[in-house]
């Protein structure tokens, strides 16, 4: 299975998002680079609204991700509760 990945700007909001991702996807690899955080995982990765809200302590719309997003790799699925990335093969 190939790796999906997402890169976020290294800022205060992203740190909560990364914490949420790590909680929901225990096998992810988090790589810190200048000004950015790259997160990769085999096959699949989910960003769940509920977990991010819990970390941030406020309401969070999945589409707010666009503000801190740098890039991603994988097929995207998005609904009100989560954004996920996956490869089929």
């Amino acid at each position: 299975m190939s790796k999906v990945y997402i890169a976020l700007q290294d800022n205060d909001e992203s740190r909560y998002i990364v914490e949420a991702i790590e909680e929901d996807n225990p096998d992810v690899t988090v790589i810190h680079m200048p000004a950015m955080i790259r997160i990769e995982n085999e096959g699949r990765l989910s960003i769940r609204r509920e977990t991010v809200e819990e970390k941030m302590g406020r309401d969070w719309d999945v589409q707010e991700l666009h503000i801190n997003l740098i890039t991603l790799g994988g097929n995207v699925e998005e609904d009100d509760d989560e954004l996920s990335l996956h490869w089929n093969e």
Binding site: M36, H66, I70
Partner: peptide, 24 residues
């Protein structure tokens, strides 16, 4: 752009990542 940040160029890294957020 990560390199721009590493070379102290805050303006470029910011427009770069802001553009790239659209690129996603």
């Amino acid at each position: 752009m990560s390199g721009a940040a590493h070379n102290g160029d805050m303006a470029t890294v910011t427009f770069g990542f802001s553009a790239q957020s659209d690129e996603a």
